[in-house]
Simulated assay, not measured.
Amino acid sequence: MDIIQHSIAVGKYLVSPLIKNLDNGRFAASVSIRSGRGNGMHDRVMRFTPCFGSHAAASHYAVNEGLGWVRERTAPSLPSTPCAA
């Protein structure tokens, strides 16, 4: 069973960790990154290969990866200026 621990709203994105208990007692991490509403809603889900020894560690990893993805897309672009000699 996948468990959504908590969601974090960042601008137009909703980042939700998805943690799954594995048969071997470890935990798998995924993250859902949702944006938009209604027919324009988009949900990206990323699954990660590392397994974790605790639910908290898996959740922390998923949230950090999701927030990193959002930051890459929302960071202001720096203008390209030539280097001064």
Rank of each mutant, 00 (worst) to 15 (best):
G40Y: 01
V70E: 04
H42R: 10
H60V: 06
S77C: 08
K12V: 13
P79V: 11
S35H: 12
L18H: 07
P50W: 03
I33G: 05
R44I: 14
I19S: 09
P82Y: 09
D2P: 15
D43M: 14
N24F: 05
D2W: 14
A75S: 13
I8W: 03
M1W: 05
V10Y: 01
L67P: 03
P50R: 10
A28I: 02
V45L: 04
T74L: 10
T81W: 07
D23V: 07
C83G: 07
V70S: 04
G66E: 06
E65C: 13
S35A: 12
G25Y: 03
V10G: 00
F48R: 03
H60E: 15
P17Y: 05
F48D: 02
S54A: 09
R47E: 09
L18T: 01
Y13M: 05
P17L: 02
A9E: 14
L14S: 13
M46E: 12
R37Y: 06
S16W: 01
A58N: 05
C83I: 14
D2T: 07
R37M: 05
V15G: 02
S54K: 06
F52K: 06
L22E: 11
V70F: 02
L14V: 12
A28L: 11
L22P: 01
G53Q: 11
K20R: 14
A85Q: 13
Q5L: 08
R73T: 05
D2F: 12
S16C: 07
A57P: 01
D43S: 12
G38T: 02
D2G: 00
S80W: 08
S35M: 11
M1F: 00
Y13W: 10
I4T: 08
M46L: 14
P79Q: 11
V63T: 15
S54Q: 05
P82G: 11
P79D: 09
Q5P: 08
I4G: 07
V10K: 13
S77D: 10
D2N: 06
A57S: 11
R26W: 05
W69N: 05
H55K: 12
H42A: 13
A85F: 11
G66A: 09
C83L: 15
Y61K: 04
L14F: 06
A56I: 10
H6E: 15
S32F: 06
N39R: 14
A62G: 02
P76N: 12
A9M: 07
L14H: 07
C83F: 14
L78K: 08
K12L: 09
